[in-house]
Design a protein around this nucleic acid. Structure first.
Length: 885
RNA sequence: GGGCGGGUAGCUCAGCCGGGAGAGCGCCACGCUUACACCGUGGAUGUCACAGGUUCGAUCCCUGUCCCGCCUACCA
């Protein structure tokens, strides 16, 4: 059996395409509806159909793929359910902009034609991101790909709407909502972003109707005064006690409005009196309901003053502000203008200032749903990781307000409500009704509005599995095992899935929720187009390869921390891929004549036993890291093993076996170890670096080994545990390092091979060192090594101390002794510091009386060791001085 | 206003249950030794934000202060 020879360097682009196609052809991503294996499922956070892969997606999907590949290798029947979101406002905007170039608006086309146009757009340009996810290596079950607007999911949406409606959980009414004058639709509270704005606070005088003076109110939005229907003061405010119940004249509108008392009003803000505009402010609206005030909307959907705004009719809201202020000033009503910073709500999508407006909308009564969703997390039916997010989740759920689900858009799930033209009957139905069930009239009008995109997203964990049909998929994969998403959509999406899952399926949508942080640039700033600090994932993949890119993301994903990314960091992990590649070249060369099927005894060589023990620890660490979503720990463990144990030591230690005079038997035994360790190493790495590991796996193995991705994930092998080998190896390694240190510090050129003497503390360690003589000779570049127990220090040597072991390097003819003197003095200084600390501690009576016995013992051992080391070094230094004199 | 997270080596960060401060990158020195210069070997580097407290002992626990992020909120 011959292994393939590897090219000089790994070629990511080539391997990525080749192996991804191979996996697809073999349907390795496909999950079975029926299987004897336990199920493990994740639904993808559906990207917008208009979306392009950005760093957030890259991180999110890399983490999902790591877990999915890990679980798949562990033998689970693994489903990663992919799909996309129809993104109501975003998609409608895109298509409207396209129309605009043709000089058309959606109204020119009409609703049906416009929607057809959106679908056309979707077929042509939508879903670019799906192919980008494939370049990331995502092992989604693409055969199951879903779209929130497809037939099945639309059916689910209707079903849930009707159910909620019939159970009294959905209602319609005139309420004040967040209105975007540009998108021309209501949006939910969550979709409003508050931005601080340096503006003004204007103080305006409202005269009493009876001519008895006036009352001053403050406002940041003077134009809304046109719709004022009251002035409010706090009931406890003695200054205004007599004024409550009186009327003031609303300036410019010349209208009588009452002074009312409500404890919402803060007494010590401004004058303690506030103007009330129920049509333009949510708080004022609430107050109007408490006091049965008149509610006047002075603006239309575009933010233009309407007929209720008197002579300002037709003016846009900002223009009206200017004019109102000018007129107030002219009329002597403007008392003062102060600089004032306050928060202005903006539309998350287009950044237009939100206009709170009263309109007829659909709402979900959310409290009962939230109650269940809270309970599920309290009872640990769903675990939120990291746990700190639970508090945020609870806080939001406890203070939740009814969800406005209607949107005045065309692209989306149209609300399944019809109105009879004749009898005004309201029909709410899953199937489009043909006639009015009351009067039989066939002229029915469907509600014009569509549902919030998040409504359909909230059903994603079960709608994608076929609900409302009772499918096998649903039975097998719901509740899903895990959701991985960014914390920024905890409320938007996670919370709503929790509520809907519990309401519809009577069970949580997922067992675990892992929330990851944001990807920022290396300075910690949020990436944005305007800042120009965007790092494009695809260009990173092109430059450094998918494997390096993915590994970087995993390595920087520590819980509760943002990921700070820069191309240099990705490059660093490209070097790691290169290191793996080169180590593999050597490995494959050394295995060229290895026959896996031939019976070979396990190697009893120290390095072989040691590397297997270390590998065992690495298996445990990687597994634990992934199981607990400590991606940084898992990736660090495999990185450290490969580079600093396998490459730095094991490959070097085993070179003599392959190049030297080892017996055929030893050679084969070492090959067996090398093959095993290398295989397991690739498997551990595979979830992080799918492509290079597959390439190497295929080069290593016989053709009947189908793919690393369906191989069994390594488990700790008790037979590999070997504390003794670890101890012994550690001893040899410190001796080698110590000699190298002397070489390095003394500037001994590599061409000079040293003769070294070692004094062992006792027979046992003497034997270990003597057994490991060849390793030391090779790795420390020595000509000879003599080992004796209790050797007396010779003259003219450099000295190294490791516990009871002394290392003597004769300096004659190699270097002068001044260097060694300096080196010893440095060492001595270090030891004395430790020595002082330690003896001080032990001299402390309280310490000896109160500290744990094992701690005291440890401290005593340390003191003794330091003492000995100190003596040895001091002695060595004295001898050197004698010579140099 | 409320809440959360963070301030540890030049940079980015790890340090679980208190008991001698770590990694990666960067830096310095030497080296093209037959896998790898995308490398090897060695080295340097810290008032663990500040001030108190608890303790025999604090980077870790408690209190306060100062910075920096983020989330959330109806003070006009």
């Amino acid at each position: 059996m011959s292994k393939k020879e590897l090219s000089k360097a790994f070629e990511p682009a080539h391997a990525e395409e080749r192996w991804y196609d191979y996996w697809l052809e073999n349907k390795y991503f496909h999950a079975k509806d029926n299987s004897d294996s336990p199920a493990f499922s994740i639904v993808i956070p559906p990207p917008n159909v208009t979306g392009m892969l950005h760093m957030g997606h890259a991180l999110n999907n890399t983490l999902q793929d790591i877990i999915i590949r890990f679980k798949r290798m562990q033998g689970y029947n693994t489903l990663w359910m992919p799909g996309m979101d129809h993104a109501g406002i975003a998609t409608q905007n895109v298509v409207e902009q396209e129309l605009m170039k043709e000089g058309l608006s959606r109204h020119d086309l009409g609703r049906a034609k416009f929607i057809a146009r959106v679908w056309e757009w979707k077929e042509k340009y939508g879903g670019v991101i799906i192919n980008q996810l494939k370049r990331l290596g995502c092992s989604c079950d693409w055969e199951r790909e879903r779209f929130t607007m497809d037939e099945g999911l639309s059916k689910a949406v209707r079903e849930v709407f009707v159910r909620l409606y019939n159970e009294g959980m959905i209602y319609q009414g005139d309420y004040i909502v967040n209105w975007c004058p540009r998108c021309h639709t209501a949006i939910s509270d969550l979709e409003v972003e508050f931005k601080q704005d340096a503006s003004f606070l204007w103080n305006i005088r409202y005269p009493f109707a009876d001519g008895s003076g006036d009352i001053v109110v403050a406002t940041t939005r003077p134009e809304t005064m046109l719709g004022d229907t009251a002035v409010a003061v706090n009931p406890l405010d003695f200054r205004y006690r007599d004024q409550v119940g009186k009327f003031v004249i609303l300036p410019l509108m010349n209208k009588k409005i009452p002074v009312i008392a409500d404890d919402y009003v803060t007494m010590d803000f401004g004058s303690g009196a506030v103007k009330i505009t129920p049509g333009s402010d949510p708080n004022d609206f609430a107050m109007a309901q408490r006091h049965q005030l008149e509610i006047i909307s002075i603006m239309d959907g575009h933010g233009i003053i309407n007929e209720y705004g008197g002579k300002y009719k037709g003016q846009d809201r900002y223009e009206a502000r200017k004019n109102v202020l000018a007129d107030l000033e002219k009329g002597g009503y403007l008392v003062s203008t102060e600089h004032y910073a306050h928060n202005v709500g903006q539309c998350y999508r287009c950044k237009t200032d939100i206009e709170p407006m009263v309109s007829k909308q659909w709402f979900i009564k959310i409290k009962p749903l939230a109650k269940q969703a809270i309970a599920a997390v309290v009872k640990d039916k769903t675990k939120i990781i990291p746990k700190t997010w639970e508090a945020t989740y609870f806080d939001w759920m406890n203070n939740i307000r009814d969800w406005c689900i209607s949107r005045q858009l065309w692209w989306g799930h149209r609300i399944p409500v019809w109105y009879c033209d004749d009898c005004d009957k309201v029909i709410v139905a899953i199937e489009d009704p043909k006639e009015c069930p009351d009067c039989g009239n066939t002229s029915l009008m469907q509600d014009e509005d569509v549902l919030d995109t998040w409504f359909s997203s909230a059903l994603w964990p079960f709608s994608t599995l076929g609900w409302p049909d009772k499918t096998e998929s649903l039975k097998t994969f719901y509740p899903t095992s895990l959701l991985i998403t960014g914390f920024d959509i905890l409320f938007f999406w996670v919370a709503r899935m929790m509520m809907m899952g519990l309401y519809v399926m009577k069970d949580v949508p997922f067992r675990h929720v892992y929330l990851h942080a944001l990807v920022r640039d290396e300075k910690g700033e949020k990436m944005s187009k305007s800042k120009g600090n965007i790092i494009d994932p695809l260009s990173m993949i092109d430059q450094y390869g998918t494997d390096a890119f993915r590994f970087t993301l995993a390595a920087y994903t520590a819980q509760g921390r943002d990921v700070r990314l820069s191309p240099e960091r990705i490059e660093g992990y490209k070097f790691f891929v290169n290191k793996i590649w080169n180590a593999s070249k050597l490995t494959l060369t050394n295995l060229a004549d290895f026959d896996e099927s031939a019976p070979v005894n396990d190697s009893d060589s120290l390095p072989d036993k040691w590397i297997k023990a270390k590998l065992n620890e690495t298996i445990a660490e990687v597994t634990r890291g992934l199981e607990e979503y400590h991606f940084n720990d898992a990736s660090a463990a495999i990185y450290h093993f490969i580079w600093h144990e396998f490459c730095d030591w094991y490959l070097e230690l085993s070179k003599p076996v392959f190049y030297g005079k080892a017996s055929q038997e030893q050679r084969q035994a070492t090959q067996k170890t090398l093959h095993e360790v290398f295989t397991v190493m690739l498997q551990l790495l595979h979830p992080f670096m799918p492509f290079v590991t597959e390439e190497l796996w295929q080069s290593l193995n016989d053709s009947d080994e189908r793919s690393i991705m369906v191989s069994k994930f390594p488990v700790v092998n008790p037979a590999w545990e070997d504390k003794v080998a670890e101890k012994k190896m550690e001893m040899l390694m410190t001796i080698i390092t110590s000699i190298r240190n002397i070489r390095g510090e003394m500037r001994v050129p590599p061409s000079i091979k040293l003769k070294v003497m070692v004094s062992a503390g006792d027979d046992e360690s003497g034997k270990i060192i003597d057994d490991g003589k060849d390793y030391i000779l090779n790795l420390a570049n020595l000509e000879s090594l003599t080992v004796e127990v209790g050797l007396v220090e010779p003259k003219g040597v450099a000295t190294g101390v490791i516990g009871a072991t002394r290392i003597f390097v004769p300096l004659a003819g190699v270097v002068d002794i001044t260097g060694e003197k300096a080196r010893l003095e440095k060492e001595l200084a270090k030891v004395s510091k430790d020595l002082e600390q330690s003896s001080k501690k032990l001299a402390n009576r309280d310490f000896c009386a109160k500290a744990a016995p094992e701690i005291i013992q440890k401290e005593e051992d340390k003191l003794k060791e330091c003492q000995e080391k100190f003596n040895t070094l001091e002695n060595a230094l004295k001898k050197l001085k004698e010579i140099s004199r």
